[in-house]
Write a protein that binds this DNA or RNA. Structure first.
Lengths: 339, 339
DNA sequence: AATAATTACGAAATCGTTGCCGGGAGAGCG
DNA sequence: CGCTCTCCCGGCAACGATTTCGTAATTATT
């Protein structure tokens, strides 16, 4: 079944030319006559010649491949971001390797470490690791591999572009909105206290409470352990206590769904007893019962922008200046926060 | 910033050994003394040596990379499948390149054609192209690249493993279930009439109607054009006609969501006026209003099985026999089909 | 007509790794 | 002591493409 491969040597021998001539003809070099070029191109097309990418990579230290590293894929934000990344990368002729860390920092480090070998030209990453634990990324950068962060970023990390949404402002205005809707006891469920978006959103939440003269209750700041059972127990316990919250602001859609399940189980009325607002890119938010008010991130655009920055760093390193790009989220008001 | 690369030559010169000795030491060859091995390994670890994958690929015609080609990614079935693919592949030491065809057969062909060059060792694919249009895949196979199909497969395609769910039976029992719930006029929305799952599910739907003595109405077999506007108009028009259906069985979750939107817009009661059942892997199905009855596919397991088959084909070609693997779906009854 | 310049191609080195040899040193055996 | 055998290691040729350099043949220049 295994046909003999079509490579430059094969083309050259069929055309009675040298390998270098064929190579140059295919790259449309000025050194080759139009006549010869045509002969070469025609045969290449006829035999479906495809250059071996690894041979070229070896010589040129370019693989035309980028890696996307995300904490999870069961999350509509990342889905849309990956879609944006993928589309932009392909449009620019890049291949995309995908790595899912499953929220496991050790696994992320492993993946990143094995990336110092030229397999990829650059990396687009949304961090799983805490922001202060980035030696593995440092190592990458020292090897000359550009990194672009999106969503969960390492602000302090020098020389890399960072693409985020306005996390602080969104959390602030989201929390303010809950207050406007009548909430006085608002809990916040954060994804982590050691990750950029966790920190930024928490700050926005806190500031909004302060500005409204509401005291921040530390026991109502719930921190996820990325474990479904644990997170469910944590939220359930909070929602069932005597002086329970009348508002819940969650940082990821998973936790909003958990809250829905808990409220159904214990017949807590949304929005009557509890108003719910979540960062989310769920396509079904408006169809839920009740429909979910969301802070919707421009996930697709963030993904696109990340790749644009990365490719700029790769192809015009001289002109490339790391940027901090912000693309605003949108607050969509629905039933879950109605008065 | 760009540190000089750590490669075998560098290690060899530091250790005063030859390149081949270092290479063999790292691969734990029996030709090398334990002593030398240790020296080599220690230095390699210290300097974070990572072998250049492309150099090896070039010599061994193995890239330890597979491609996943899917029609779309905004679809929970594919999300979970990709997750299964990714996890299994990484567990077995493979890297995953992802390609999204956006339901565009021409793009699929392009992607597949550029894959005959050794970039990947094998391909896991869910087809966008019609089942009778597979020369591009034929070309791949002739190059000796194993292909594993999942979900949208090419049955007639020789020598490849095929992983599906029991599409025919699921569609049959789903339709029967709608009839049991009192539906007499059931429409079916298929994803395509030229794709395996479209055909299989349509057959199951038809057989169920026949077995219940209900005539199949061709105008109620709606075929998607993978265009949101078109599909919406098509379903809307069907649901608004005089003698409208009292049941709708959709093949992909997107169309179920479209149906929800249409029903809301025109105040069609689900399940009172229209019962709705859909193939779907939505995590929010039980939270919709009304909750959506689904035929849920074992997407994650299908992805895993696909990679297992592919790796078997790659690593034990002698022992590999193409298989047709079926993993059953589950019918989950919820409010959208209540009596 | 002699020299310079241009055109069109080929030879060979190179990227980092692997694997087939070949060979020297020492051990074991008769 | 001479032979074979094993143990370790180094040399070298690939893998497929790119690129630098060299060179023969043709054309242009003075």
């Amino acid at each position: 079944m295994n046909m003999e491969p079509i490579n430059l040597k094969k083309l050259a021998s069929l055309l009675h030319l040298s390998i270098s001539t064929v190579s140059k003809a295919l790259r449309d070099s000025h050194e080759i006559s139009a006549d010869t070029k045509k002969r070469v191109m025609d045969l290449a097309r006829e035999l479906n010649y495809e250059p071996n990418p690894y041979a070229g990579s070896l010589r040129k230290f370019k693989s035309k491949t980028i890696a996307v590293i995300v904490p999870d894929i069961i999350n509509n934000f990342f889905i849309f971001a990956i879609k944006g990344i993928q589309e932009m990368a392909h449009a620019r002729g890049y291949h995309v390797l995908i790595y899912i860390t499953n929220e496991n920092p050790e696994y992320e480090k492993d993946v990143v470490r094995h990336m110092t070998n030229g397999r990829v030209d650059g990396v687009v990453i949304s961090l799983t690791s805490p922001i202060d634990d980035t030696e593995h990324l440092q190592a990458l950068q020292e090897k000359g591999l550009p990194i672009v962060f999106f969503d969960r970023v390492a602000e302090a990390f020098g020389n890399s572009s960072i693409i985020t949404t306005n996390n602080y402002e969104s959390a602030y205005s989201g929390t303010r909105y809950l207050i406007e809707q009548g909430c006085k006891r608002i809990a916040h469920c954060q994804v982590s206290d050691k990750i950029s978006i966790g920190i930024d959103r928490l700050q926005g939440y806190k500031k909004a409470l302060e500005d409204s003269g509401i005291a921040v209750r530390p026991e109502w700041i719930l921190t996820s352990r990325k474990d479904y059972m644990h997170d469910t127990a944590l939220i359930e316990q909070t929602l069932l206590q005597k002086d329970a919250p009348d508002g819940l602001f969650t940082s990821v859609e998973t936790h909003a769904l958990i809250a829905y399940d808990i409220c159904r189980k214990h017949q807590i009325d949304i929005p009557g007893q509890l108003k719910l607002l979540s960062f989310s890119n769920m396509p079904t938010a408006h169809l839920l019962k009740p429909s979910l008010s969301t802070i919707t991130q421009p996930a697709f655009e963030i993904g696109q922008a990340a790749v644009q920055q990365l490719i700029l760093a790769l192809e015009k390193p001289a002109r490339y200046v790391p940027e901090k790009i912000n693309i605003d989220s949108i607050l969509v008001k629905r039933e879950s926060t109605a008065k």
